[in-house]
Design a protein around this nucleic acid. Structure first.
Lengths: 244, 244
DNA sequence: TCGAATTAGTGTAAACCTTACACACTGAAA
DNA sequence: TTTCAGTGTGTAAGGTTTACACTAATTCGA
């Protein structure tokens, strides 16, 4: 049997770039690296790693995420591949972008050298990134917006126990819009995907809110029955938004 | 300024694989290649091409699509990248999957060697593909299903003049469900995105249907105003579907 | 301990959208 | 002239989304 010989074809270095989202203090954040060397020294960039000869792309993404955050088994999904000829000044490097959602308070700084320069940056402040990382971040943020409306991934960003207000703020941060409190609660609660823990917040200087957790078991059951999680943004509010 | 030296890192060959959808005789089809050589000789595979040193991924996809179909300026979008270590028997080959939508009657067979073995295969019959092309096709089909509900891409698959029944059949083929004729028409026409051409079909052995064309100009205007094209599948029908 | 501050929690009516459903019309072919 | 095949049309019921404002619980400081 004759096989294709790959020697004659162009080969490129390739990396995975991780867009790691977290949510803290009502603000959606990304874990960025302050670059300590050229190119783009001093600028923010995404954590990126060369893929090894013997590992799959997904494996590389999982491995590097763990090296950086210490976390395993988090939400992680491939988004897109960026392969512009001139995207890397040192030569051709094709990068596969992954995005992940982590609970920011579970994040612990790791001993790896790159992690020393990692910082959570508000998505609003994540500008002027190195390479084409601005484009990559944008693609991942768009994907998150899309995903959050059709699958209950928001819970990946919240601590196990959360209040409805926190959940609403999360959605508002991701969708970049305001939501009506009563309608939001009605909608979320009507899905029966939250377990009311019969506990309340502690240490807040106001009426404490009830705590809920996400009922993953119930969701998996409903999924199997053809249920579709759908959380809509107000169309009117989108339209208003676009006018600004 | 010190730069990273890429020589030390593993490099891989890169291809683009094209999932080219067409619609004909009420049936959604994919353009596949009957493989004339090992590996997977005799099986169907996606048209795939190595990416060149000096071209971007999108350029490679556009170029190869034209080489195969003779068509330029068609709908083309990157879907996902497949980089399993063992996906290609000859060595590491990472492939970036693109999907495109073409008007099947504009397709003309090209002189390229690969095009000689190209055939339109109904999506239902596209099984047992070479490599991981089955997974790739599935990913692209899922993306098409998603896209068709939120953007008016269906028209890319139809001839410039079409009947409402043809449009409905197209949606039914993509969404793999039945739609109610009256409700479908009501919904589509209420968007005001179709121009009634005041012409009718010819050469059919029954009452001829009116012909319409897609009003792209209007759509672009509406888009700018925050309009969102949204065509929903009946939830009940989805649920029924899942039970089968 | 009282009042102010802060955030939590709740219901309804109107508008809008989606669904289910059946029959008369047109033109070609026999 | 009848049959065949597919086109084209309306409505009522049910469900979803929207807009909107006040009372409840707790801490803090005076």
């Amino acid at each position: 049997m004759t096989m294709i010989n790959l020697d004659g074809f162009f080969k490129s270095a390739f990396t995975v770039d991780n867009v790691i989202f977290g949510f803290d203090e009502g603000d959606l954040k990304v874990l960025l690296i302050k670059r300590g060397e050229e190119p783009f020294e001093g600028q923010w960039g995404l954590p990126g790693y060369f893929v090894k000869e013997n590992e799959n792309l997904d494996q590389a993404a999982v491995r590097t995420l763990e090296e950086l955050t210490g976390l395993r088994k988090v939400f992680l999904e491939q988004v897109a591949t960026f392969g512009g000829v001139d995207r890397h000044p040192s030569g051709r490097v094709i990068t596969v972008a992954y995005f992940s959602l982590i609970k920011i308070n579970q994040y612990t700084i790791q001993p790896s050298s790159i992690a020393q320069h990692a910082e959570w940056v508000s998505i609003k402040d994540a500008k002027n990134l190195a390479f084409d990382h601005g484009d990559i971040l944008k693609a991942c943020f768009n994907r998150l917006k899309l995903l959050v409306r059709t699958r209950p991934v928001g819970f990946e960003l919240l601590p196990p126990k959360f209040t409805l207000t926190e959940l609403q703020h999360l959605y508002e941060a991701i969708l970049e819009t305001d939501l009506d409190k009563r309608n939001f609660r009605k909608k979320i609660l009507s899905m029966n995907l939250l377990i009311d823990l019969d506990e309340t917040q502690e240490g807040v200087a106001h009426r404490p809110a009830r705590l809920y957790k996400f009922d993953k078991k119930k969701y998996d059951e409903l999924l199997a029955d053809g249920f579709s999680f759908e959380l809509k943004e107000s169309r009117r509010k989108i339209a208003e938004h676009l006018q600004n």
